[in-house]
């Protein structure tokens, strides 16, 4: 694996501040760092009890490593970090984060968007929402698939 950061798939919550400080330290002197955090959103008007995230152990790690490697190759990055959780998450909990570091902000922003676009529809995660009305799988959005064409 080249560059700082890496890929982690975990059930446990992560400490965003600690992750960013460690990533910043590992890419010190670079100049620009961008991060994105995905948080469980209640689209059910306060009735969302939890979101359960299922994944494909083995393939998930491989897919995330590939997405990260593609970003590292495409932009001149000092590092890229992907952390993604699975299991039961409550509204307001962090689902995932990405961070990128580069000499200039444009590469860092673009690489972070690239990571997010590919994570959305090329990483084997599936979300099921549990509300007081029952449970429902979150459908993939056509615009998420379409977003890949810009790369």
């Amino acid at each position: 694996m080249s560059g700082a950061g890496g890929v982690r798939v975990q059930r446990e919550a992560f400490d965003l501040g600690a992750e960013l400080e460690a990533f910043e330290a590992a890419t010190s002197g670079t100049g620009a760092m961008v991060s994105f955090t995905g948080i469980v959103r209640d689209d059910a008007g306060g009735r969302l009890d939890r979101m359960e995230i299922e994944h494909y152990p083995g393939m998930t790690e491989r897919a995330l490593e590939k997405i990260r490697a593609d970003a590292m190759e495409r932009w001149d990055l000092a590092g890229a970090l992907i952390v993604h959780r699975y299991g039961a998450l409550r509204p307001g909990e962090r689902i995932m984060m990405v961070a990128t570091a580069a000499r200039h902000r444009k590469a860092a922003f673009a690489a972070a968007e690239f990571l997010m676009d590919y994570l959305k529809s090329r990483a084997p995660f599936w979300k099921k929402e549990y509300t007081s009305d029952g449970a429902e799988w979150v459908a993939a959005k056509e615009e998420d698939e379409a977003a890949l064409t810009r790369w």
Binding site: G38, K120, S121, A123, P124, F125, W126, K127, A139
Partner: peptide
């Protein structure tokens, strides 16, 4: 086999 993925 699985439905379209919904990561992120």
């Amino acid at each position: 086999f699985f439905p379209p993925m919904t990561g992120g």
